[in-house]
Nucleic acid binder design. Sequence first.
DNA 1: ATTAACGGCGCG
DNA 2: AAAGCGCGCCGTTAAT
Length: 551
Amino acid sequence: MLVVVAPSSGGVLVTRTDDAGTALADPVELTDDEYAAFVADPAQAGVRWVWQDTAVSYPPLLRAGIRVERCHDLRLCRAILRGSTLTSGSALARAPLDALDGESPLHGPESAQTLFDVAPAASEVDPLAELRLQLDAVAGAAEPGRIRLLLAAESAGALAAAEMRHAGLPWSAERHEALLADLLGPRVPAGMRPRRLEELAREIRSALGAPMLNPDSPQEVLGALRAAGLVVSTTRSAELRRLEHPAIGPLLDYKKRARLLGANGWAWLDTWVVDGRFRADFLPGGVPSGRWAARGGGALQLPKQLRSAVVADPGWKLVVADAAQLEPRVLAALAGDTDMARAGRAGDLYEGIVATGAVPDRNSAKYAMLGAIYGATAGQGGRLLPRLARAFPRAIGLVEEAARSGERGEAVTTRLGRSSGVAGASWRAAQSAASDADASPNEERRARAQARERGRFSRNFVVQGTAAEWALCWLAELRRRLTALEPVAGRRPELVYFLHDEVLVHTPAPLAADVATAVREAAGAAGRLMFGGFPVDFPLDVAVVDDYGQA
DNA sequence: ATTAACGGCGCG
DNA sequence: AAAGCGCGCCGTTAAT
């Protein structure tokens, strides 16, 4: 059962449809209050709510204490269907751009939103007509089950993203401040250098004989290092570490601490942590590969240094789970490479590869695998790639084939049907200009480099994108299982964080063991949804802890 | 004075 | 340690 929800002048217009999007009754206009009661009605269990944008429509329901099981996010699903090679013949793929294309309107603080705040211009969209276009596109696809699963998983992800923002990541400002005081010194006003940084700056200046040096300026630092007789091309820490000079130690120390101050210092704490919660916007489908993006506070780049500030409430626990070697396992399954899948059976996939005799040690296995997925040509990864290709021709053949497609300017497609898009006009123009008889060597070299770059992108896209699909299925399955757990004193476990192949659940302590079980079961279910009976394992590392730093 | 690009670094 | 992919955000610097 589908219920299509659309904003109207007086409230909300709801229309029941069958699974093909055919209306079963006339639309009904409800006031905001009637709508809330309608959605919350237990009789609606199992309904899939169809709306333009989960990020707009769901938060008001959450604030009213209402959760929904399933939805169909028209904006996210259109983006997938428009680009997918599996639905390229559909009417939807050819439809003109409108208000439903592009990013969701950015949402500000929760309090700034009214109950049925709808994006300007988005009201021009007829959601029922759009739903039918989308369902037609799915029905016309080869193996429609795959893309249907992708749309369901993407939409479930949108629900989870809104719920995560609503719950917030439990954050101890006290612990964070203690860490800052320890590493930087007492708090200082914005724009000033804390004591520890000031001391290090003095050391650097004196070691380089540059009394006015601003250590935050790469330009000035580079100049001062060169003036001191060092041969350097950048001020990247990795390059500085190879140098021998009294200024290098304090400079590296300064950069590390300055980074903490700039990215996650007192200003960050003041801006992003409110009432013991860090709330960011998570954007499902924010990356072309289907990975999530995030806005606000660098939510997907929380430094490990700071994770001990993520603390469960009293009487609660954090269940932290991450999928081990997700991308290589996904590649094995995607390619139907039973040998590689078998290498991951016993546990650590890289050790399993060593056991086949293909490479000498775990590090070699790891870097060769990552090299295959990223397209390394040099370094350890590049050197060992041929041995990996001999041992696992199907897996390596799949990424090589994706790279060749990308180099020809074609789109590549993930397991469930997300596509990378064909090359743009300027890329094509550069390629064809370079193949002209009178092309300059420079043009040819540049075009070849661009083609290889596109090859690496495409090679990575199929693996990263399929891994993102596995993670979405995992998240969706976990969300369902968490809802099914019996609450403790009316409180339920909450998904509070998701990081590509890792989830955090904040749970009443008595449910922690059940949550850990649910996380593992969800991983197994995700593997079966994505790859059917193909014998590939997706083992997790799961920890039940009081703070994220303990995981 | 404001905006855009760059260098750098955090995460997977 | 970096290499090869994907991101967001900071302070500085160049451009407008």
